[in-house]
Design a protein around this nucleic acid. Structure first.
Lengths: 149, 149
DNA sequence: CCGACATGCTTCCGTATGCAAGTAGTTTTA
DNA sequence: TAAAACTACTTGCATACGGAAGCATGTCGG
């Protein structure tokens, strides 16, 4: 039954994510002092026009809540990786802008992540199979804003 | 470059997981009163021999810490879904056993999850593509114990 | 023009989680 | 066989997160 296949794919997706996050997150933290979610936030900013996004758009792109964005940005501001910027047209919105140092940091961390991604696929994977996996996974969020890669 | 493809696949995996969890988890909670992680825990027990597992094995299968298992089991015990059982050979280990009511509940919730999985793949997916995705994702954790599905 | 509603963000509170330390029990080793 | 090392589990502490409420601002309809 196709339902069973769909369930298997879903369960394996959750399992693979937990497995990969458990391997990648500690390394990322020890090398660059960034959590995985922080890196994903900075990557979103790096790929956004003018390297800046509204907080509500960040929340949507990361599938998280606005309050999480608010709190995640505090240490990133203290570290100088992002800066706050107001919108002259609408006083409600607060942009999160990636700074120069933030850009440098995210590029370093992206290299590390790229290395670990290659490591995760090192055995048992052909190049076209990795591309196939990326294509299939991309279907879930291809229509949504914020598709890095 | 193959590194870039691997990075894309990894980023899309994280993104797809966040997207799907955001859709599935609230539904699961409102219908069955279970969080996604609780359901995954109960599913592990349901597929284990004698419907029971040591806490340390549960932690390994769910890629989480032992302390999380300890705390997650408390409300599940209160609800009567799981029971504690000692090992006569080794007084250190505490088995977590799925009860009758727990089995019934997990089977209901599994049906819901199966429906939502089918829903997630409803558009833009052929049956063999879903199977392909499941096969590819399974490679990450196929060698590890606790592969449901 | 102004009252009602909508939007963007922050704060408060409850919950979930990992890590380190602590406890109890088992295995290894000298 | 006794001390040391290891294992399974629990607890304390710090952190991360979501949802509801609150606040400021913007928009719409009469």
């Amino acid at each position: 039954m196709s339902n069973t296949t769909a369930l298997s794919a879903l369960l394996r997706l959750f399992r693979a994510q937990a497995f990969l996050e458990a391997r990648i997150s500690p390394m990322l933290g020890s090398v660059h002092g960034l959590s995985l979610t922080e890196l994903l936030l900075l990557l979103q900013l790096g790929h956004a026009p003018l390297r800046r996004l509204r907080r509500v758009d960040l929340a949507q792109r990361l599938h998280t809540s606005q309050s999480t964005i608010t709190r995640m940005c505090l240490p990133l501001e203290k570290s100088g990786f992002v800066k706050r910027e107001a919108d002259p047209r609408d006083a409600r919105v607060g942009y999160v802008v990636l700074s120069k140092t933030g850009l440098a940091r995210v590029e370093e961390a992206e290299k590390t992540l790229k290395r670990m991604a290659a490591e995760a696929f090192r055995d048992r994977w052909e190049t076209d199979e990795i591309a196939m996996l990326a294509e299939l996974l991309g279907r879930f969020t291809a229509a949504l804003p914020g598709d890095i890669s």
